[in-house]
Computed example of a mutant assay.
Amino acid sequence: MEVLDGDENRALLSAGLGFSRADRCVNVQRVGLVAEVLARNGVIAVVPVIAPYADSRAAVRKRHEQSSTPYIEVHVATPLKVCAGRDVKGLYARQLAGEISGLTGVDDPYEPPPAPDLRVDAHLQSTEESAEMVYELLIARGVTRR
């Protein structure tokens, strides 16, 4: 299993991209390509990124379908208030102070998936419970075994 961390991808794979809609879509496509190549080679890729636009997510799903590789969309449905309260990177505070703009879900859109393969309400359960939900879905879809 390989984890394609969003921050690492932004720093390396998508270095130079900004946060415009076009750049965000390119970032998602690049990470999606790497995940699909890994999947074609039997490696499960976990991709914890913010993919705010439905069309970008659909394109990545289509790429996986075309190569007959598994694709599972997990929507970690955390309310904006909870995200802002956690503010691990200080982005919400910086946006509130007017230092940055284009923050997903605040002054840039987030299009929630209408029918993800799994919806995780992580703010209502423990990290372990959320991880178990994902693991059980991977088993049910035949992506991994116990």
Rank of each mutant, 00 (worst) to 15 (best):
D5Q: 04
V46T: 14
R21V: 10
I50R: 14
E111T: 07
A77C: 01
L103F: 01
K81E: 15
G105I: 03
L4A: 12
A39F: 10
R94H: 14
L33H: 10
P112N: 06
D55H: 13
G85L: 00
P52I: 07
V106H: 05
E99A: 05
G98H: 13
M133W: 03
G142V: 08
I100L: 03
V28I: 15
A84W: 09
R86S: 03
L13N: 06
L103S: 05
D7L: 02
T78F: 12
G85K: 12
T144A: 01
D107A: 06
A54C: 07
T104D: 13
G142D: 04
V82E: 10
I72E: 11
P113W: 10
V31N: 14
Q29N: 12
I100P: 13
R10F: 15
V47F: 04
E65F: 00
K62H: 04
I100M: 09
V88F: 01
E132M: 11
M133H: 13
A131K: 05
G105L: 07
M1T: 09
P48M: 01
V106R: 05
N41I: 01
T69F: 10
C25S: 09
E8P: 00
H64Y: 00
T78C: 15
A140H: 02
F19N: 14
D55L: 03
V31T: 15
R86Y: 03
P52V: 05
R61S: 10
A22E: 15
E73N: 04
V106N: 08
V37C: 05
N41H: 15
A140S: 09
E128L: 02
E2T: 11
V134H: 05
E99Q: 10
A11L: 15
R94I: 12
L96H: 09
Q95C: 06
A58Y: 04
L4D: 04
